[in-house]
Design a protein around this nucleic acid. Sequence first.
DNA 1: AAGTGGTCTAGACCACCGA
DNA 2: CGGTGGTCTAGACCACTTT
Lengths: 237, 237
Amino acid sequence: MAKYHDIYEDLKGKIEEKEYGAGTYLPSENELMKLYDSSRDTVRKALNLLASSGYIQKEKRKGSLVLDVGLISFPVSGLTSFKELERSAYRYHSKTIVSSFEYGHPNARIQKKLNVGPESFVYEIKRIRKIDGEKIILDEDYINAKIIPGLDAQIASDSIYEYIENTLGLPIAFARKEITVVKASEEEKKLLDLEGYDLLVCVKSYNFLEDATLFCYTVSKHRPDKFRFVEFSRREK
Amino acid sequence: MAKYHDIYEDLKGKIEEKEYGAGTYLPSENELMKLYDSSRDTVRKALNLLASSGYIQKEKRKGSLVLDVGLISFPVSGLTSFKELERSAYRYHSKTIVSSFEYGHPNARIQKKLNVGPESFVYEIKRIRKIDGEKIILDEDYINAKIIPGLDAQIASDSIYEYIENTLGLPIAFARKEITVVKASEEEKKLLDLEGYDLLVCVKSYNFLEDATLFCYTVSKHRPDKFRFVEFSRREK
DNA sequence: AAGTGGTCTAGACCACCGA
DNA sequence: CGGTGGTCTAGACCACTTT
């Protein structure tokens, strides 16, 4: 099912494999209709997906221009989790260390962040991400245990997202993220290999399920020299 | 024209004005068809825009849930330029100082960034952004003069984007951005009020017109404590 | 059983570009 | 003038939720 999505994946693949090279035009919508034996609307849905993710630029009365799919490395974008990054093209020698795993009632700050009361239960997990032998990233996750039950340190050392999506079958849908720069605390200096840096790039993220439930608040702190965020954005209007 | 866009704007406004409150559902697609006297497809286009910009979450067989439109401040996202930020809700006492304005052939690095030859002409503009009396941001713009002619220091001190879009009538379409953290050079320490910080948040941006012409490469460096980037992202699949 | 959003189709008109 | 993408319409079937 979801024909338009199949067409999107197919075209995306062919652009990445240079079958449709940068600077050339895709077949017209009329031709794509025939190629994929589908209606124009369906083809256009696929093309819109390609445009919004930066693969093509649609030009009126000319066609769909294939863009140069440049470097796509270390995106915080698209809800990518650390575990997914490992699997990506940019493969690091990486390791996750669970430095603390707690379960209990949240303090006032976390109650507010997760929008829960003092009687609720929350997992508080701290993890250190090691890349090429250096402790680079510190992740703090605050997870609503009522929504995400059954976590343990073993799952945390693997991938919490995979557990949520595959084991629990809960669909992660969207996130609000904020990137700032903060001073490193003494504890953070001890936990990470900061090499003299006293600032950290701080990515705070509110993560939601498909039914718009806020299930997790994450604070991810990166050593400045190892942080990189890439974005493709279209201008409104 | 562009009915679906009008509907989008109307609904967006009503969500921002709390006419449709967070946590409630929008009228069903069927009702919206009648409300706006349009077809279902047109209504759905508007709803998709709302969803992709984070205003609603569509839930199958239930409806379009209105999300809590939180803080939207200082987004680098969406191609927002400094001049637009000024006009936004978060109004700063701000001022732009053109610290250097040059016109000539580009060096090898800029030739590569702008994808032009050594015989081409490029504007190289440095601007300091003052917010509340403090010099916080340093912008370097490298602009292809063949595409964007007629720039001068006066325009640079106002808004280059406005000049491109309104005076020249050229449509700015999309950008590729990269955020990293870099060490401040001695020159940058002199130009900005860094208050002891020796790192800067560096936003590099390749900016394109609607016909996918690369017209401008920008490097924008921010004092770490004044930098903030907010993003809404949907999970693929 | 009624209502919802997700998908797909077929056809239409427009504005504009290039031959 | 034919081809392009942009927009809009009307109708259809599906899977599922709610009543």
